[in-house]
């Protein structure tokens, strides 16, 4: 990862906060995550991204956040 700090915006209508937190916990060994609200989005500030990590931590984190959201919404159906 060339940029050790990034912010991703996840729309609040499409991602659940608990799901994002869960993804952040999964990736806690590889980066630090701070979640805040920013208008219609959750802003996830990702810092201290492990340069040794094998893969794109931010993009994988987003996939996990989406997947966790799907799982949680599914349980509600």
């Amino acid at each position: 990862m060339s940029n050790p700090n990034q912010t991703v915006l996840l729309h609040r209508a499409l991602y659940m906060q608990q799901a994002i937190k869960q993804a952040a916990e999964t990736f806690a060994d590889f980066a630090s995550f701070a979640i805040s609200r920013q208008g219609a989005h959750y802003a996830v500030a990702i810092s201290d991204i492990d340069a040794e990590a094998d893969g794109d931590v931010v993009a994988e984190f987003c996939n996990f956040a989406l997947y966790n959201t799907m799982q949680r919404k599914r349980k509600k159906i």
């Binding site: 996840l10 729309h11 499409l14 794109d56 993009a59 987003c62 989406l66 799907m70």
Partner: peptide, 15 residues
């Protein structure tokens, strides 16, 4: 649909 693709692509949804 998004779910089907997360094994081969990074997927980000927005509105």
């Amino acid at each position: 649909a998004a779910y089907i693709f997360i094994d081969r692509a990074y997927v980000l949804l927005d509105k």
